[in-house]
Amino acid sequence: MTLLQQIITIGAVVVGTLITRFLPFLIFPAGKETPRYVKYLGKVLPAAVFGLLVIYCLRNVSVFSGSHAIPELISIAVVVVLHLWKRQMLLSIAGGTVCYMLLVQLVF
């Protein structure tokens, strides 16, 4: 690829990403009343999206190969227990991450 072709390729990705981010705001501008169905989606979607993002983070983890998802399951359990116990976001995240790093570096 020439430099110009590279710039066009990167430009196509930039424009595509911009469209996915700006489209909802262009279709439903702030000045106009947003349809009730869309407001409903805006309220219920995030909870489902957070579930999707958790699965998305774990998409390449395999139960059948490597460490059989054991470090992931243990570390997520640590996050959940820490968060139910103290409900300190940073503590839960740091605890789970340190646990995971120790497991993948020293145990598995």
Partner: peptide
């Protein structure tokens, strides 16, 4: 894994 942990917490 910090990212995964964060999404679990936000969930």
């Amino acid at each position: 894994f910090a990212m995964t942990a964060m999404f679990v917490v936000i969930f």
